[in-house]
Nucleic acid binder design. Structure first.
Length: 775
DNA sequence: CACCCTCGAGTTCA
DNA sequence: CTCGAGGGTG
C-alpha cells in the first residue's frame, strides 16, 4: 500500500501547527528586522520571548516544520558572534514545504496552470545538512558562508577549505567572473557512525544525528587549540562532504534548464548528486518520491525529503518568488524518522526472568507513522552512555522503522531542572534487593523468582505465548488477572504450578481495575470508587432464555491433537453455571478449554513453558527429541545433557539447577497431576536423535515475510518435518531464504550474502522434492 | 578466539 | 523486528 510507504499527513493538528509556525516566523523576523535595521521596538521583551518560546515548542513537537531560516536557529547570536558575518550577494531563499502527495500534486497542478503548459520537473534529494553559499571570484573560492537568515550568514571559509571535494579553483572555462554556488554540507552516514563510536570510546559527547555532527564540525574554531586539537579538528572537517544544487544569478547562461546547469557545475569540478531525475509529469515525480521513501537508507547521506524544481529556467523568471521562497520549487518532506520529545521519567520494569530493565517514559510523539510513548533503555550503563537525564528533551527514532529508540539528549534545551536517573537497588515490584546474577554482570535481577509478582505474571504469560504452549486466551491481560490478589484473598495463581488446575469457579470472581489507556491511571466512577471489570463473567441474559455453555464454540483444535475437549466436556463434571445473575464469559470458557488442549501438546513446548534459563524453542526441541520425556532429562547427568547437539555445559547446568529447586518440582508434580503430558508417546528413550533424512536433509532454511499457505510456525514445522534446519537469522551457512511479501532485513541480508532466495511456491516444491526439484 | 547462532526483552500494528 | 548479551562451535 502506497500510503504505508509514504505516509500521508492527514493530521489536522499538523496543518494548524504549520500555519502557526509560519505566522510566528514571519512576525518574529519582521520584529528583528525592525529592531536591528531600523532600531524600532514594536513589542515588549516579554511578548517577544513568549512568541519565541511558542515557536520553539511547536518546532520541538513538529521538527519537520522548522524552516532553515527559523529565528530559533539563530537565537542569541551565539554562532554569529563567533564567526564573521558575510552578506550574500543574492538572498538565499528557502523552500516551501508540502507534507503529503496530495499537496504536492496540488502544487504541480497550479504550476502547470500558471505556466500554461506541461512542465518537466527536476527531482532531487533534499539532503539533511547545512545550506552553504560558495563565492568564486575569477574561478577562485573566496568565501564560504552558512545560510544564516538568508541575507547575512557566517563566514566559514577557512574551515570549508578542509572539506574534500570542494575545489579551491574552478575547472574549465566559461564561468562568470563572480559566481555564487549553493549546496549542502553534510556528514556521510557511515562517517557519522564512526565518529560517534570514536567519541563514545573517548568519553566525549556523541552527536544526536549527522546534521548536528555536520553543524558542530563546521563551526569548530581554530583559536585556542594546540597542535593535537587542530589536527583533530581538520580530520573531522575532512570527513564532511558537499553537494551543490544551485547557482546564484548568472546573466545569459548558455543553458536553458536546471538539469543542464548541474552538468555545467559538474564540468567546473563541483560535486553534484547522482540521485536526480527529470520527471515528464507530476506522476513521475511522485514515483521518484515514493522510490526514495523506500530507499532512504541506500544513499550516503540522510535525506529529509525531495526537492522538486521546474526544470525550464525561463519558467523560473515567469513564476517568480515570494519574499521567502521561489514559486518554481517545492520541498516534499518525508515524515520524520526522528523527532524530539520530552523524557518524563525513567521507570524500571521486571520481566519474567527477573531482569530489571529501565525504560524511557516520554511525552507521546509521532515517529515514522505511529505514536510512541515508551522505549527500552536496556540497562543502567546504556542510560549513562546515552547521557540522558530525566526531564531532557530527547531525540527519538524508530530503529528499522519499528522499534522505538532514544538516541540522546538535546543538550541545548536543558534548563537545569533535569535530574539524573538512579538505578533502584530493590525490585520495584516486590522490594527484594536487586543483584547481578553473577559477578560482573551488568544486568540486575530480582532474585525473588518464586513470588515476585512481576516474574510470576511474566512466567504465566510466557506459558501462553506462541513460542511455548500457545494458549489462546492466556495473554498479558489474563496473566495479570490470574496473578493479582483477589482482595482480601490470594490470587487464583501464586505461581504457575496451579495453572492447569484452574476451573471456571476460580476465574469467576476475578475483577480487574480499568485503567485509562492514555494516562495509565485507574479510572474512577462518579462516586469516586474504582471502575472494575469482570472479564471472566458476564450478566446472565434474562430474555434469551437459559445459558447454554455447549453453544460456545471452543477454539479450533490443533491439527493432530487427538480427542480435543469440547466446551461441554469442560463444563461437565461438577458443572459450573455461575450464580443467579451471571454466567462464565466466553473468554473464561475459551481459556479453560485451551488450557485443557495445551496439556497434550508436544514435549518441547512444555519444556519451553517451564521458563528454564537458556531453554527456548530450539534448545527445547533438541532436548525433547533426544530424551523423549522430562523424566529422562531429569535423570540425565551434566555430560549426558551436554552431549545433545546445541546444548553445552551452561545449559546443562541451568537444567540441573532448575530441577533442584523445590517449588520447581512442585510445578512438575502439579502439572502432571492435572494431566500435562511430560513425554512424547512412542519415543524409544534417550539416544541420538534420529538420523535426519528427508528432502531437506543437511540444509538450513530461513523463512521470512508472509509465505502463502504457511503460518510462521507452520513454515518452521514444515522445514523440520522435511529433515531440514530452520534458522532464525540469515548467515553464510543458510542454504535457502524463503521470502514472502513483507520480508525485511533478512531478505536484504540474503541478497548481500548471495544466499538463494525462493518464493512461497518454490518453498512448497523444495519441501516436497528437495533442492533438485527446484531446477 | 572468532564467528555464528539463539535467547530474551520491549514495542507497535492490524 | 531489532538489539545486546552470552552460549556453542570450529
Amino acid at each position: 500500500m502506497a500510503d504505508e510507504l509514504v505516509p500521508q499527513h492527514a493530521d489536522p493538528a499538523l496543518a494548524s501547527a504549520k500555519a502557526e509556525v509560519d505566522e510566528l516566523t514571519s512576525r518574529i523576523l519582521g520584529l528583528r528586522d525592525a529592531y536591528y535595521e531600523r532600531d524600532e521596538v514594536l513589542v515588549s521583551d516579554a511578548d517577544y520571548d513568549a512568541m519565541m518560546r511558542r515557536l520553539e515548542a511547536l518546532e520541538q513537537q513538529y521538527p519537520e516544520l522548522q524552516s532553515q531560516d527559523s529565528p530559533t536557529l539563530s537565537v542569541g547570536g551565539r554562532a554569529a558572534t563567533l564567526f564573521d558575518p558575510v552578506r550574500h550577494a543574492e538572498r538565499m531563499l528557502s523552500l516551501d514545504n508540502v507534507f503529503s502527495l496530495d499537496d504536492f500534486s496540488a502544487w504541480a497542478t497550479k504550476v502547470e496552470r500558471d505556466s500554461g503548459r506541461n512542465v518537466d520537473f527536476l527531482c532531487e534529494l533534499k539532503i539533511d545538512g547545512l545550506a552553504i553559499n560558495l563565492r568564486y571570484e575569477n574561478g577562485r573560492l573566496v568565501s564560504a558562508a552558512t545560510r544564516g537568515d538568508g541575507v547575512v550568514g557566517e563566514d566559514v571559509t577557512e574551515n570549508v577549505r578542509y572539506i574534500e571535494g570542494i575545489p579551491a579553483r574552478l575547472e574549465g572555462s566559461g564561468h562568470p567572473p563572480l559566481v555564487e554556488v549553493r549546496g549542502e554540507i553534510f556528514f556521510p552516514v557511515e562517517s557519522f557512525r564512526a565518529l560517534n563510536a570514536e567519541q563514545a570510546a573517548a568519553g566525549e559527547r556523541v552527536f544526536a544525528n549527522p546534521r548536528n555532527a555536520a553543524s558542530g564540525s563546521l563551526r569548530q574554531k581554530a583559536e585556542g587549540k594546540n597542535e593535537a586539537g587542530l589536527d583533530l579538528m581538520h580530520r573531522r572537517l575532512s570527513r564532511l562532504r558537499m553537494l551543490v544544487h544551485g547557482l546564484g544569478a548568472w546573466e545569459n547562461p548558455p543553458v536553458t534548464t536546471q538539469s543542464e546547469i548541474y552538468a555545467v557545475l559538474a564540468s567546473w569540478g563541483l560535486p553534484t548528486s547522482r540521485h536526480f531525475r527529470v520527471a515528464r509529469s507530476s506522476a513521475e515525480a511522485v514515483d521518484f518520491i515514493e522510490y526514495y521513501g523506500e530507499h532512504r537508507d541506500s544513499v550516503e547521506h540522510e535525506i529529509d525529503g525531495i526537492v522538486i524544481k521546474v526544470d525550464e529556467l525561463a519558467l523560473h523568471a515567469e513564476l517568480g518568488a515570494t519574499s521567502r521562497a521561489p514559486r518554481w520549487a517545492i520541498a516534499y518532506k518525508y515524515p520524520p524518522e526522528q523527532v524530539n520529545t520530552k523524557l518524563l521519567d525513567i521507570v524500571v520494569s521486571v520481566g519474567r526472568t527477573g531482569r530489571a530493565t529501565p525504560f524511557a517514559v516520554m511525552e507521546p510523539a509521532r515517529v515514522a507513522g505511529s505514536v510512541v510513548r515508551q522505549a527500552t533503555l536496556h540497562n543502567q550503563d546504556v542510560v549513562k552512555a546515552k547521557g540522558i537525564l530525566i526531564g531532557d528533551t530527547v531525540v527519538l527514532r524508530k530503529a528499522g522503522d519499528v522499534i522505538p529508540e532514544v538516541l540522546g539528549p538535546v543538550l541545548e534545551l536543558r534548563d537545569g531542572t533535569e535530574r539524573e536517573f538512579v538505578m533502584p537497588t530493590t525490585c520495584p515490584e516486590c522490594g527484594t534487593p536487586l543483584a547481578p546474577a553473577k559477578e560482573g554482570d551488568i544486568d540486575l535481577r530480582c532474585p525473588n523468582a518464586r513470588s515476585c509478582p512481576a516474574q510470576v505474571r511474566g512466567r504465566v504469560e510466557h506459558v501462553g505465548s506462541r513460542g511455548a504452549l500457545d494458549v489462546e486466551g492466556l495473554g498479558e491481560v489474563s496473566a495479570a488477572a490470574l496473578t493479582q490478589p483477589l482482595v482480601p484473598e490470594l490470587p487464583p495463581l501464586t505461581t504457575e504450578a496451579g495453572l492447569f488446575e484452574l476451573t471456571l469457579a476460580d476465574l469467576f470472581p476475578i475483577e480487574v481495575v480499568v485503567r485509562d489507556s492514555e494516562t495509565g491511571l485507574p479510572k474512577l466512577l462518579d462516586d469516586g470508587s474504582l471502575k472494575v471489570e469482570t472479564p471472566f463473567r458476564r450478566n446472565r441474559q434474562k430474555r434469551d432464555g437459559e445459558f447454554d455453555p455447549t453453544r460456545v464454540a471452543p477454539a479450533p483444535s490443533a491439527p493432530g491433537s487427538a480427542a480435543a475437549p469440547t466446551a461441554s466436556s469442560v463444563i461437565s463434571g461438577p458443572a459450573f453455571a455461575g450464580d443467579a445473575d451471571s454466567v462464565p464469559s466466553s473468554q473464561a470458557i475459551a481459556l479453560i478449554t485451551n488450557l485443557e488442549l495445551a496439556k497434550t501438546k508436544e514435549l518441547w513446548r512444555i519444556l519451553v513453558s517451564l521458563s528454564i534459563r537458556h531453554v527456548g524453542p530450539v534448545a527445547a526441541r533438541a532436548l525433547a527429541s533426544y530424551f523423549g520425556s522430562l523424566d529422562a532429562i531429569r535423570a540425565a547427568t551434566r555430560d549426558e545433557l551436554a552431549a545433545v547437539d546445541g546444548v553445552g555445559t551452561i545449559i546443562a547446568d541451568a537444567l540441573l539447577d532448575w530441577f533442584e529447586v523445590d517449588w520447581h518440582q512442585e510445578i512438575i508434580r502439579r502439572w502432571a497431576d492435572a494431566g500435562v503430558q511430560f513425554s512424547t508417546p512412542g519415543h524409544p528413550g534417550p539416544g541420538a536423535a534420529a538420523a535426519t533424512d528427508g528432502p531437506l536433509a543437511g540444509l538450513t532454511v530461513v523463512a521470512t515475510g508472509s509465505l502463502d499457505g504457511f503460518t510462521r510456525e507452520g513454515a518452521v514445522e514444515a522445514i523440520i518435518a522435511a529433515g531440514g534446519k530452520s534458522a532464525s537469522s540469515v548467515s553464510k551457512k543458510t542454504d535457502f531464504v524463503a521470502a514472502g511479501p513483507g520480508a525485511g532485513s533478512k531478505l536484504t541480508k540474503a541478497e548481500e550474502l548471495g544466499v538463494r532466495i525462493i518464493d512461497a511456491a518454490q518453498f512448497a516444491v523444495l519441501l516436497k522434492g528437495g533442492p533438485t526439484a527446484l531446477d
